[in-house]
Design a protein around this nucleic acid. Structure first.
Length: 598
RNA sequence: GGGGCGGUAGCUCAAUUGGUUAGAGCACCGGACUGUCGAUCCGGAGGUUGCGGGUUCGAUUCCCGUCCGCCUCGCCA
């Protein structure tokens, strides 16, 4: 095989007359008979047209060219010249062609399940995953792989500049309570014992702070055995970091700088200073802890007005524990929202536990249709509070606070999509802060960490936290944490916190979570020990690398940015994982399956 | 575990109210063509309509089950 001298995007008029060697895949062939053949040769970088004709190429070379088909692999040597048939403005190399003197067929392809170059007839995702190596040949996928590489490289560069050390932590870990379901690995050497794959290197990175590393970084794989979503895989990659002797502000500055660097380097976008919202504000105004503020449709409380009406739905809601009535103004909704759509919205919110979506319209005569006659007594106040103008419509939610804002928050996003209200090409970065430390889980009858059990209370809350009565639900839920989430266009890309570095605070958290001292000792003794032996104040954050790459590549499917992703049922359609293991393997691992098949 | 959508040629899709031999584009195979660039033109081959059952004179179409893929609720400290 001749040594390659150039990539297929590199040749231009200044190479005319030079002898060059290229190698790659046949992207397209145009065969004009035995006398003239064109091949678009594709490699990682681009396309170059090869030409074979009777005047310039030998019969042997022509004979090979005549048989070339899509996706055959060839190496060719020839001379660069101006395109005799005129330039092709669609290609970077459209000014030139390579007239081939030598050609070697390196690999003949069998019949293909699909053509990577055929953008018009893109195969379904199942096909793409089964033949991932063909899918990845597509320039779009090559571009994603490249962007992912750049993000990883920029990560290492940025954090290196900031004085972080890249340190590895174990993949075979100990299972810890709470959190997601663990993936688990049987121990051969310790019969009956199991490792868990890390859901994140959380405890190890804190231990590294106690170990005096001061600034830690890792691009690490994490595993959570939960059902996937469009933006979630069981196996994903996290940009994980931790810093000592810092406060919340320090971590946020470092990470904001990092995000700004990524967007600048990859998209040449200068992000403005990130907006900050409290968790409470997020829920009140957007009904979600990762708000998308690129469009309006904010949620407005009208409970006091609703109380003045005779509408049964409102009365029922207000009678509930923490019952509220809230509304969203939809500009121009009177004509843009059809009856069919609003009927669907009622179905839509039912999945979030809400009963339905009452509506009404605003005209120049006041409120009309839907529940207008019920809200008539407060029409003027409603118009004023929501800023209604003729042509608008109003979507109502009435339920307990949690259900109401959740339903309206999801509805708000759906309406924005339906009405095409989300601006393209706009970036919306923000921080969410002041999360509660705990939320009460009604079913379990106990408190849960909103973030994780190692999150510290905000410094001004610590004394109140230590003093709070564990049975006083309101007092406990009022304690704010020193955590922070980074949100980009309504998607959570990173989250972290200042950690607890005082043993008594950590023990108090465990006890509130219902983790007995014995359990805590069994599961976390190494952390509690470490906190006894001189732990510096520290905090950190984890970034979802996959999600960041999704944003930078403009896709809403996480599988697009993972080279070899898994399906909804956790399968790898290419390799066939997961699969059975032999009885011998099972025996060695002291494992017996209870699965009997069906 | 629940809800929704989908599965027809190698790929992307079509097929009237349940009705004759299940079609088209691309790919593939053969042929023609010396300036194409998604080459063009002619011809050919290619089907267990995911799988199993049911209804029917007759099922790609209707019903039930099941498998696979996607979206989603739950879940994701």
């Amino acid at each position: 095989m001749s040594t390659r001298t150039h990539h297929c995007n590199k040749l231009c008029t200044e190479h005319i007359g030079q002898t060059v060697s290229l190698a790659g895949w046949v992207n397209a062939y145009r065969d004009h008979g035995s006398g003239l053949v064109f091949i678009d040769l594709r490699d990682r970088e681009g396309l170059t047209q090869l030409v074979f004709d009777t005047e310039d190429s030998s019969q042997t070379v022509l004979a090979v060219a005549d048989k070339l088909r899509n996706e055959d692999v060839v190496a060719a040597t020839g001379i660069v010249r101006t395109r005799e048939g005129g330039p092709n403005p669609k290609l970077d190399t459209g000014e030139i062609e390579v007239v081939v003197k030598e050609i070697e067929l390196l690999s003949k392809t069998d019949k293909l399940p699909f053509l990577p170059s055929d953008e018009e007839n893109m195969p379904g995702e199942e096909m793409r995953l089964r033949y991932r190596y063909l899918d990845l040949r597509r320039p779009k996928m090559q571009q994603i792989l490249r962007t992912r590489h750049r993000v990883a490289k920029l990560t290492r560069d940025y954090f290196d500049e900031q004085g972080f050390l890249e340190i590895e932590t174990p993949i075979l870990c100990k299972s810890t309570p709470e959190g997601a379901r663990d993936f688990v690995v049987p121990s051969r050497l310790q019969p009956g014992e199991w490792y868990a794959l890390p859901q994140s290197p959380q405890l190890f990175k804190q231990i590294l702070m106690v170990a005096g590393c001061e600034k830690y970084l890792q691009i690490c794989r994490c595993f959570r055995d939960e059902d996937p979503r469009a933006d979630r895989q069981a196996e994903f990659t996290q940009i994980d970091c931790e810093m000592s002797f810092v406060e919340r502000e320090d971590v946020m500055q470092v990470m904001e700088g990092f995000a700004r660097r990524l967007w600048k380097e990859v998209l040449d976008y200068d992000a403005p200073e990130f907006e900050r919202l409290t968790y409470r504000e997020c829920l009140d105004r957007f009904g979600i802890d990762r708000p998308d503020t690129r469009f309006g449709l904010e949620i407005v409380d009208i409970s006091d007005l609703a109380a003045k009406t005779d509408f049964g739905v409102f009365a029922t809601a207000l009678a509930k524990d923490r019952g509220v009535v809230r509304a969203i103004r939809v500009p121009g909704g009177a004509t843009r929202l059809t009856r069919k759509m609003t009927d669907r919205y009622t179905e839509f919110v039912k999945q979030f536990g809400a009963g339905g979506v009452p509506v009404c319209k605003c005209t120049d005569k006041g409120l009309e249709t839907g529940i207008a006659r019920f809200v008539e007594p407060v029409a003027a106040e409603l118009i004023a509070r929501l800023g209604l103008e003729p042509g608008d419509s109003v979507l109502f939610g009435a339920d307990s606070y949690g259900t109401c804002v959740k339903a309206l928050g999801e509805l708000r996003i759906k309406v924005a999509r339906d009405l095409d209200m989300i601006p393209e090409g706009k970036w919306n970065f923000l921080w969410v802060v002041d999360f509660p430390m705990f939320e009460y889980n009604e079913e379990a009858g106990r408190f849960q960490s909103l973030h994780h059990p190692f999150t510290a209370p905000r410094p001004d809350q610590i004394e109140a936290f230590l003093a709070a009565d564990g049975n006083d639900r309101d007092a406990i839920e009022a304690i704010l944490s020193d955590g922070y989430d980074m949100v980009v266009n309504g998607s959570e890309v990173g989250g972290g916190s200042i950690r607890i570095h005082r043993k008594e605070v950590q023990e108090r958290v465990f006890s509130l979570l219902g983790i007995s001292p014995e359990d805590a000792a069994e599961k976390f003794s190494f952390l509690l020990d470490a906190l006894r032996f001189g732990a510096p104040p520290h905090g950190g954050i984890a970034f979802g690398l996959d999600r960041v790459v999704m944003h930078l590549c403009g896709t809403d499917n996480i599988r697009d940015v993972i080279p070899f992703p898994k399906t909804q049922t956790g399968g790898d359609l290419m390799s066939g994982a997961p699969g059975e293991v032999s009885d011998e393997q099972m025996q060695e691992l002291h494992v017996k399956s209870t699965w009997e098949g069906e």
